[in-house]
Amino acid sequence: MTESGAPSTNGKRPRRRAMAAVAVLAAVIVLAAGFLINEYRSPAGEPVAATQGAPSPGLGSPVPTLSAPGSAAPSSSVPSSSAKAPQASLGKTTLDAAGGFPGPGNTGVPSGTQLSAYSGPCTVTRNGFEVTGKIINCDPFMIRAQGVVIRKSLVKGTLTTTEATEFSFTLEDSEVSAGMWQGPAVLSTNMTIRRSNIHGGATAVTCAANCDIRDSWLHGQLIPDNVDWHLGGFLANDTGDGGRSNVTLIHNTIACDAKSNNSGGGCSGNINLFADFGPVSGVTIRNNLLGANPDISYCLYGGATAGKAHTSGVRDIVVEDNVFQRGRNGKCGGYGPVTSFNSGLPGNRWKNNTWQDDGKPVAPAN
């Protein structure tokens, strides 16, 4: 069974005109048009054109300001390893081999895709079920089947499987907007994610076991005042499948970009490996951009945090070729770029991780 939408070739973005005499009018037109395009809403579920990777207004997904190489200060809203930000276009911006990182221009629903209302079940139980080009108003969108595919769609809610099962899904060229709640936007087992824009919730993605995430943008966590929530970009703190995490994070932009609130709640780290409920192991973290935020503790927790119940079983964590932003304080996080990575554990490897601005090495720390 499939839910499909038809592609469009006329989803053009508005452009500002640099004419001083009409500056105010032009700004009003651009803002109004951008709002209408990015809302992803239409009466009676009629198709609307999507703009590549742009968070829907009102869903609380701020675009993080990330620094370009050679500058410690933020210079662009587009996370990129190139000083030149990706240009807006009708089609998807290709993720180039030179190291351009995922962001609003190359993740999420491709520009020009026609989205229409999803009318299928909010709990999927049919193996091989596919959804394409839909606005999915399900919270949660629950996967209780194998081989489910969500493609070129907007999920307005959480997307989840059940831990320690064989249920599985693939999320491609899509956006998940979870809104504000004390949990992850996407979880928990047997997931494959490609070129997707994931925001909302307290954590963008939580993985219990068997998660392969590439070319995606994890960001935009949400927290209200008067609560002590712990936020993150990616979290692995449990295990399935014989005690191994089996996590692959390759070529993503991962940022916990929320500010701390009035109760001390806020971001722990961008990537959080904690041996709370099982020994985190079998993790590959390669060629990712880790966004700076002085309100997070560290940009990376490496699995060997003292006092955790299963730290003794942590092993086979490979962290290589990643790029750390320095941010305003020059340390990526409030205390530093990394903690709790033990190079002496079996199979652990730290190699060629660098600062974005000058290419100098980032050393592991435990």
Score class of each variant (00 low, 15 high):
291 G>R: 09
309 A>S: 11
322 N>L: 01
312 S>R: 14
334 G>K: 10
359 G>D: 04
349 R>Q: 01
306 A>K: 15
301 Y>L: 13
289 L>Y: 12
344 G>N: 02
363 A>F: 00
307 G>S: 01
288 N>L: 08
303 G>Y: 11
363 A>L: 05
278 G>N: 14
304 A>H: 06
300 L>N: 00
302 G>V: 06
310 H>W: 14
326 R>Q: 08
278 G>D: 02
278 G>Y: 09
280 V>Q: 11
322 N>W: 00
308 K>E: 14
310 H>F: 15
287 N>D: 15
302 G>W: 02
352 N>Y: 04
362 V>Q: 01
313 G>M: 08
360 K>C: 05
323 V>R: 12
312 S>H: 12
307 G>E: 03
338 V>S: 04
280 V>C: 03
302 G>R: 03
308 K>H: 06
336 G>P: 08
343 S>T: 15
291 G>F: 08
355 W>N: 00
317 I>L: 04
294 P>S: 12
294 P>V: 10
321 D>E: 12
331 K>I: 12
325 Q>C: 10
333 G>I: 06
356 Q>M: 15
338 V>G: 00
333 G>L: 07
337 P>G: 12
348 N>K: 02
349 R>L: 13
331 K>F: 07
354 T>S: 02
319 V>A: 00
318 V>K: 04
310 H>M: 11
309 A>K: 14
351 K>E: 05
339 T>H: 07
282 G>P: 07
339 T>S: 04
338 V>Y: 01
282 G>L: 06
356 Q>W: 06
298 Y>P: 04
305 T>H: 10
316 D>E: 15
337 P>H: 11
336 G>K: 06
304 A>W: 12
312 S>T: 11
341 F>M: 05
288 N>M: 13
347 G>Y: 02
336 G>D: 02
362 V>A: 00
317 I>N: 00
325 Q>K: 10
292 A>V: 09
336 G>S: 03
343 S>C: 00
347 G>C: 07
303 G>M: 10
351 K>H: 07
328 R>W: 07
299 C>V: 07
338 V>Q: 03
311 T>I: 09
283 V>H: 02
279 P>F: 08
297 S>A: 12
294 P>H: 09
343 S>H: 05
301 Y>Q: 12
361 P>L: 00
361 P>C: 03
282 G>Y: 05
360 K>E: 13
292 A>K: 10
288 N>G: 05
322 N>E: 00
307 G>M: 10
337 P>Q: 09
